[in-house]
Design a protein around this nucleic acid. Structure first.
Lengths: 129, 129
DNA sequence: TTGACGTGACGAACGAATTCGCTACATTGT
DNA sequence: ACAATGTAGCGAATTCGTTCGTCACGTCAA
């Protein structure tokens, strides 16, 4: 037997989604150009992936124009939240706190960014005194 | 062609690692009991997975006792950091900040936890004035 | 129009992940 | 000692993700 279908976009799907999120909509050729920078894959592969993603409902396409245009059918924010929740659940035993602490302590956060985190904490504490 | 080998532990491997991290070391039977609660898989599957993970160097085993005992060969913290970094890179365009803000705004964080985040920010800001 | 070129659709192929059946061996209770 | 029961090791089967080759069709300029 094999594993059950994952609800999350896969590796390559994610790369394509990122291209589409950034552009807001692209032809297969444009997606391919973006993808070929990261990986050395062929145009054929890109088109196939787009068709797979269409089946999965990850992208939408406008067939009324030529060449056809693709748009992401899932929002970046929601996808991020889903994948983040997944990571918290599966890797951090459900503790968002330990994830946040580890992300902060990675030392990659500048002081401006820390200030922004502080603002966020302030705001959240204000709502639940 | 197929995807290249992922450096990260896979789904089931992660579930097994979590069991081992929690117990500190278990027999195949014990791992199986933990795993069978989450999925309905057989003992045979568990043993196979452990052998695969042994090959990959994800677990270590003590063959001098019977039944053999397995321990995680990778630390939980390091695995978490790797996977977190991966998510930040691939899903958050490299921005740890937006990940942290989204994790906080999920509304799952209690006020005690927020306080702890604030402590962390204080500490980090103190180091880089 | 017609040849050159881009676009799109399949299906095939391969590796990785996951699952289990079956067999051999060890351990244990009587 | 030996039957019952648990442990371990393989190989095979299945599904998914990814990649590409190839064919059919549209578009467009000369």
């Amino acid at each position: 037997m094999a594993r059950s279908v994952s609800t999350q976009p896969t590796e390559v799907e994610l790369q394509i989604l990122r291209i589409l999120w950034q552009s807001g909509g692209s032809t297969a050729r444009e997606v391919h150009n973006g993808l070929a920078e990261l990986k050395g894959t062929t145009y054929s592969t890109t088109v196939k992936m787009l068709s797979v993603m269409l089946d999965k409902g990850l992208v939408r396409r406008d067939e009324s124009v030529s060449p056809q245009r693709y748009r992401a059918a899932v929002s970046q924010k929601i996808t991020q939240k889903k994948m983040l929740g997944d990571l918290i659940e599966k890797v951090y035993d459900g503790s968002a706190l330990s994830l946040v602490l580890q992300a902060l302590s990675s030392g990659k956060t500048s002081s401006e960014e820390l200030a922004e985190v502080r603002r966020m904490v302030d705001e959240l504490e204000g709502k639940t005194p």
